[in-house]
Design a protein around this nucleic acid. Structure first.
Lengths: 334, 334
DNA sequence: GTGAAAGCGCTAACAT
DNA sequence: ATGTTAGCGCTTTCAC
């Protein structure tokens, strides 16, 4: 603190603009003066004030990533990619967590906007109008990741897993493996991208396959182990005839499902096949989970973020690629 | 963007200083003008520019948290606490990950300093001089969490798990349970707080107990599942007489150890007892892990951060409280 | 209690 | 290629 661009200018015997030019690598400066400035900067431990710079440029070199819950193992993956990509683009990514508290999210969004962030990645779980309104205020690119808005005319660039088709595929996979009684245990019913679309994928696929889905074969709660247990318990309790396969809305849910099944003495995959979603915890969990792996799109997100061509007005909606991974939590019915 | 304090002043028919006073709640403004200003702010969607403010105050309302690896489940826990505590203190916490890349850490630290952050929490894994030098430049409070510096005269406030005593306790616990052949599989040998101190705790406790520790009973690698497997494999390969108990430097290591044991047909805890550290993943892993739970000190960290009494010059070093949790990965030897 | 005015440290015209 | 200068939007003495 303390040493300013003026000091460097004086020390190096040049004008402040020259120092500024050196710092920003803009336009040309004679090799000799550049050297002198650089030396002086080093010697005096000069660091430009982000505030002063930001005051003029309206930029900050910061990309803000807002996430609902850091604990969620799926998030770490894309976060790491975003991070690397940002550094490569001479920005730094900062992450803020709002713990699913929309009020907190608004507070953070305001703060981020005041900071003149150069990009915003919002990985929400459920939106409300207040958040969307806040999002609109940003002048920088705003990307919705992992979570879209159901409005058809979504005004923000969005990139998510293609839950609809993925779950269609999972359902058909089960059918091909000989299953016909298939249940679905999903997460937060308000979550458009990660729940509603997935459930719809399931129902549409079942219809395509001309398979019945009793009401009691469907459960929606949260994306957690506990909720998975509850869901399976509910299905177990309310059905004389159990399904032979369960599609879980996430790996954590799948773990809960399996935990419950184990607690009542049922084996996976012998007595029940369970398919997860995310490929997030299979290296820790005892039964390698068959699951949907999204090729997480930190790169894609940043491409949108840094693409000057990206027109804010033009609606952008894209999907991560995904693939089904077959491990040992599912089996073929003979 | 666009609407400034001037606009509000004009709109409300007061001076900019009055607006400023209202915004900051400083000194006194007549109730009437305050109302007028507040109304105008609302109506015009005014948000003060953080840059302009920061340029003067040298503050930002931001607390930066630098972590090595977000994937590490132990981190999410304290992060969440820090977050809440910050909001309560009218600051926001932003997290940045440096992926164990010290060069990246320096880059991020510089960026954070330029941003005039009001506090820095560094949760490193291993330090180098460059990082420490960078840390010194900060004018705001700097807290080292989860990781201390071995220098006796550590110049930063530090708060970590008391690995030394915790592992002493684990070792004695094993002894009391009838074990005498105890192995230790730790993480990064350069990590002072999380490895060196723990190993020392193990060795000191063993000496106290007058128990032998063959060289080949000790392995240090990384804090990962893979490294845990390697460690156990190494111990398995190099010893005719196997230990009956293994102390792992982290839960992830413990999982690796158990995986390896399973792969060679040994059962936990029947054939081998394994003690973890962190209490991070026991709800996901198949065998409930006996482990050391640190009462994670997000609150303590923030107390240091926000305590005006905290003297930077006065060395502060404290520990989280911890407790041993006995689950099913260990057994009593008959 | 309130306003005028002087910067905070930098960038970006604009001159030269 | 380089220097001069006018702000960016706010806080903060200092008068009144």
């Amino acid at each position: 603190m303390g040493v300013t661009i003026q000091d460097i200018a004086a020390d190096a015997g040049v004008s402040v603009s020259t120092v500024s030019r050196v710092i920003n690598g803009s336009s040309s400066v004679s090799e000799e003066k550049r050297e002198r400035v650089l030396t002086s900067i080093k010697r005096n431990h000069f660091h430009p004030s982000a505030a002063a710079r930001s005051l003029i440029t309206k930029q900050s070199g910061i990309v803000a990533v807002l996430v609902s819950d850091l604990t969620n193992p799926t998030i770490s993956l894309v976060l790491e990619e975003i991070n690397g990509e940002c550094i490569r683009n001479n920005k730094v990514a900062v992450i803020s967590e709002y713990s699913g508290d929309n009020q907190k999210a608004v507070t953070l969004l305001i703060k981020m906007r005041e900071q003149n962030v150069d990009g915003l990645v919002f990985m929400g779980v459920s939106f409300n109008e207040a958040i969307i309104e806040e999002l609109r205020q940003f002048v920088c690119p705003v990307i919705l990741a992992n979570q879209g808005i159901q409005k058809d005319n979504c005004e923000f660039a969005t990139i998510t897993a293609d839950g609809y088709h993925a779950i269609c595929d999972v359902t058909k996979f089960f059918a091909m493996e000989g299953h016909s009684r298939i249940a679905f245990i999903g997460g937060n019913p308000e979550d458009y991208t990660n729940e509603q679309l997935r459930r719809r994928g399931f129902l549409d696929a079942m219809k395509d396959l001309s398979l019945q889905v009793p009401e009691s074969y469907i459960y929606e709660g949260k994306f957690s182990i506990e909720s998975g247990m509850k869901g399976m318990e509910s299905i177990y309790a309310h059905n004389q005839v159990l399904p032979t396969a369960v599609i879980a809305g996430s790996d954590l849910i799948a773990i809960g499902v399996i935990r419950y099944l184990q607690s009542v003495g049922l084996k996976v995959p012998d007595d029940m096949s369970v398919f997860g979603f995310d490929d997030s915890v299979s290296d820790i969990f005892e039964i390698p989970l068959s699951t949907v792996r999204g090729i997480h799109g930190g790169k894609e997100i940043c491409a949108l973020l840094f693409d000057p061509e990206m027109d804010r007005k033009e609606k952008h909606w894209s999907y991560y690629p995904y693939q089904l991974i077959r491990r040992n939590s599912t089996r073929r019915l003979e």
